[in-house]
Amino acid sequence: MAAPMETLVAKQECSFSRSFDAVKCEGDCQIIYKLRCDISDHLIRFKSGPKDKHVSIPEGLLILYRAGLFTVENATMKMTICDSHRDKLSTQWYRCKRTCAHPLHPKTSKEKPDRGITLAIAKEIWVHDRTITAVGDGLCRSCVERHKKTYLTVVDVQNDIVEFHKVAMNFHEQNINRSEQMVPCSPCFSPATYPSEDYVDEMNPDAADINSSLQIYSSGKFDK
Rank of each mutant, 00 (worst) to 15 (best):
I32A: 13
I32K: 14
I32H: 14
I32D: 13
I32S: 13
Y33I: 14
Y33A: 14
K34C: 14
K34W: 09
K34V: 07
K34Q: 13
K34E: 14
L35V: 11
R36N: 12
C37L: 15
C37N: 15
D38P: 15
I39G: 11
I39M: 13
I39K: 11
S40A: 09
S40Q: 05
S40W: 06
S40I: 06
S40C: 14
D41P: 10
D41Y: 12
D41Q: 14
H42N: 11
H42W: 10
H42T: 11
H42L: 10
H42C: 12
H42M: 11
H42P: 12
L43F: 10
L43I: 09
I44G: 11
I44P: 11
I44H: 11
R45F: 14
R45Y: 12
F46P: 04
F46K: 15
F46W: 13
F46A: 11
K47T: 03
S48Y: 02
G49C: 07
G49F: 05
P50H: 01
K51A: 14
K51G: 10
K51R: 15
K51S: 10
D52N: 11
D52V: 02
D52C: 05
K53W: 08
K53T: 09
H54Q: 15
V55Q: 06
V55W: 08
S56E: 08
S56H: 13
S56M: 13
S56V: 10
S56W: 10
I57Q: 02
I57T: 00
I57F: 05
P58N: 03
E59V: 02
E59H: 05
E59G: 01
E59W: 06
G60E: 04
G60M: 07
G60W: 02
L61T: 00
L61H: 01
L62E: 03
L62T: 03
L62V: 03
L62D: 08
I63M: 04
I63P: 00
I63Y: 04
L64V: 02
Y65I: 02
A67K: 00
A67L: 00
A67S: 05
L69C: 06
L69V: 03
L69D: 06
L69Q: 03
L69F: 09
L69N: 02
T71A: 09
T71V: 12
T71M: 10
T71G: 09
T71K: 08
V72R: 03
V72F: 00
E73G: 13
E73V: 08
E73M: 12
N74R: 05
N74M: 01
A75W: 11
A75L: 08
T76P: 02
T76C: 03
M77V: 09
M77Y: 09
M77H: 07
K78I: 05
K78C: 12
K78Y: 09
